[in-house]
């Protein structure tokens, strides 16, 4: 469960202080599929970065499974991101000099607790590639594949450590509508099969409509909240 209690996040821009998130209260249950919508600069990405442990709140508490991670040090936050979070970004964020297989295996290699053998890493990466239907592109570099394939590789990388939460920041933003639709269906399928928490940031209402809950962020605060689908589990 994700609990945000009176979370605020401010940035210093020159001599001014910019309040990106203001006293935000939010609870997301395990296994929920949540869409966060809102205009540009409303604080959606900041919220996602806070939940994913990429950033720390200026004020308030962020609890993941009842554990406050707001004041965790870099080491603990890195471990948290590696083991419990899977990020999917609009720009795919793959390392261009590595193959898709190597990109997907990176979180496993950074996981200091698993202690997998190279063979086990290879096997698990292969399963990931099969899951996103990219086995035939395993040895291709990101520059050699399409946008949809890149995003599928990014999803496989996000899933490789079996995280509890997937955070997707505009995952279809750089894809055409057909490919974007396929990516959303893939994410939805994974959410249903693995029963993981899926949080998507999107501008697209049609994408948001796939989720169980749509939260609108406006000026760093929660605005309207709708429930297009009820929880199925």
């Amino acid at each position: 469960m994700i609990e945000l209690k009176n979370i605020s996040k401010s940035y210093k821009v020159g001599s001014n202080v910019l309040l990106a998130i203001k006293n935000l209260q939010l609870t997301i249950e395990d296994g929920e599929f949540v869409s966060i919508i809102g205009p540009s600069g409303s604080g959606k990405s900041t919220l996602l970065h806070l939940i994913g442990g990429l950033d720390t709140p200026s004020d308030g508490s962020l609890l993941i499974n009842h554990k406050n991670i707001s004041h965790n040090d870099d080491r603990a936050l890195s471990t948290f991101r590696n083991k419990q979070i899977g990020f999917v970004f609009q720009d795919f964020h793959l390392l261009n000099h590595l193959t898709l297989e190597e990109n997907i295996s990176l979180p496993l290699l950074l996981n200091k607790h698993l202690k997998l053998t190279p063979q086990e890493i290879k096997e698990r990466t292969k399963q990931g590639l099969i899951e996103v239907e990219l086995l035939d592109r395993a040895h291709h570099k990101p520059t050699q594949v399409s946008g949809g394939q890149k995003q599928r590789a990014a999803i496989a990388r996000a899933l490789i450590n079996h995280p509890q939460i997937i955070l997707a920041d505009e995952p279809t933003g750089n894809l055409d509508s057909t490919t974007g639709g396929k990516i959303i269906h893939l994410l939805k399928k994974i959410h249903q099969e693995r029963k993981i928490t899926l949080i998507i940031i999107t501008h697209d209402q049609s994408i948001a409509s796939h989720s169980q809950r749509i939260i609108e962020i406006k000026d760093g605060q929660i605005g309207q909240e709708t429930h297009p689908h009820k929880l199925t589990h």
Binding site: S78, T79, R81, N82, P107, L110
Partner: peptide, 16 residues
């Protein structure tokens, strides 16, 4: 910079 950001996002520590 971007590559470093990616590695940090997927769990690389400062020491990594």
């Amino acid at each position: 910079f971007k590559d470093i950001g990616i590695l940090r996002a997927i769990g690389a520590q400062k020491s990594d």
